[in-house]
Amino acid sequence: MRRLKALALALAALTAFPGFASACPMCFDPSAENRMAFLVTAMVLTALPLGMVSGVGLWLRRRIRKRDRTD
């Protein structure tokens, strides 16, 4: 768990690295809504499958545990 936390911290630190929030002179017509739309859909598409898998996985585990207790 400790290693995992360190990994998450390192990830957060690295993503914050150079100029993530800096102005972007090279972006094509950077409409804020469009950029947000890409960002939000990317996050939803990424989070959704992981959420579904972990949700269904946990539910199955509970079901299996419950059955094993009653056996």
């Binding site: 409409s31 809504e33 469009n34 947000m36 739309a37 890409f38 939000v40 859909t41 939803v44 598409l45 959704l48």
Partner: peptide, 13 residues
């Protein structure tokens, strides 16, 4: 999710 995110991006433009 794919179809709807395509629509979100379309609308944002």
């Amino acid at each position: 999710a794919g179809l709807i995110s395509a629509h979100v991006i379309f609308m944002s433009e």
